[in-house]
Amino acid sequence: MKRLLLALGCVLLAAPALAQSVGEKTGVNSVLGIAPSTTDFIKEAAISDMFELQSSKLAQGKGTAQQKQFAEQMITDHTKTTNDIKSMVSSGKVKAEMPTTLDTSHQSKLDRLKSASGKDFSSDFDSDQVSAHKDAVSLFERYANSGENPALKDWAGKTLPTLRHHLEMAQDLGRRRT
């Protein structure tokens, strides 16, 4: 009986941490406005940056003039945020591991962009940029409001205006094309 109670207690104590990771993966945290754990925030922010950088490099070769200009800005800004995150992790201010590859969702979007051209590329790129920046704004807002690491929380808040501007720019890509 003691073992059963002990096991149940461990599950209950671990449930919030597990739920948060699952919640972040499924989008439940975003819908409910729940801040991601520091580990989840770093993972999601780093993957978002990787996708922005790789998709923007494709746009430099395949995109319209407006998309190429947008891509140049994304490469500059997301290289900076990637370097900021790496610096906080390597300095020990933030305890987390940096992912080195895209998750399957972002990789499939990137693969689709690689095989697309012309209007299909433009449509997919524009749509992906709006979606990615909506997700990033949500992620950064939630962490800036309720994150657990003070230094990272402050950085997320300071980065938000740039991400909101990126979202406006991404939304403008589609408007100008149609």
Rank of each mutant, 00 (worst) to 15 (best):
S108C: 01
L113N: 04
R112A: 15
K109F: 10
L110S: 10
Q107R: 04
K114A: 05
V130K: 11
S117P: 00
K119E: 14
K119R: 11
S117L: 01
D128H: 13
Q129V: 03
S105K: 12
K109A: 09
A116W: 09
D111Q: 12
A132K: 02
V130F: 06
Q129I: 02
D124R: 12
Q129M: 13
S108P: 01
F121Q: 03
A116F: 08
K114V: 04
S123H: 15
D126N: 15
H106S: 09
A116P: 08
G118W: 05
K114Q: 11
T104A: 13
A132Q: 03
D126E: 13
K109P: 02
S131W: 01
H133R: 06
F125R: 05
A132F: 03
D126P: 07
Q129A: 06
K109R: 13
R112D: 15
L113H: 02
V130M: 10
K109Y: 11
S127Q: 15
F121M: 08
S123L: 15
S108T: 14
D126K: 10
D126I: 10
K109L: 14
S123K: 15
Q129G: 02
L113S: 02
S105Q: 12
Q129K: 07
G118S: 09
Q129H: 09
K109M: 13
T104V: 09
F121E: 04
A116D: 13
D120F: 04
F121T: 04
V130L: 06
K114N: 07
A116T: 06
L110A: 05
Q129T: 06
S108Q: 14
S115I: 01
S115A: 12
K114H: 02
F121V: 05
F125M: 11
G118C: 09
K109G: 09
V130R: 08
S115H: 07
F121D: 02
D120E: 13
K119S: 14
S105L: 10
L113G: 01
K114Y: 04
D124G: 08
V130A: 03
D126W: 10
F121L: 04
D120H: 01
H106I: 00
H133C: 03
V130Q: 09
S123T: 15
D120C: 04
D120P: 01
T104H: 07
S105V: 12
K114L: 00
K109W: 14
F121I: 03
A132E: 02
S115V: 09
D128R: 03
D120W: 07
D120M: 02
H106L: 07
D111G: 08
S105T: 15
D111A: 14
V130P: 11
Q107W: 01
D124L: 15
F125I: 06
S108A: 13
D128M: 13
H106V: 00
L113W: 03
R112P: 00
S117D: 12
H133L: 05
S117C: 00
A132P: 01
D126A: 15
K119W: 01
K119D: 13
A116I: 09
S131M: 12
H133K: 05
D111C: 09
F121S: 07
D126Y: 10
D124I: 14
A132T: 05
D124P: 00
K114S: 11
A116Y: 03
S123Q: 15
S123R: 15
L110R: 08
D124Q: 15
S108H: 12
F121K: 06
S115Y: 00
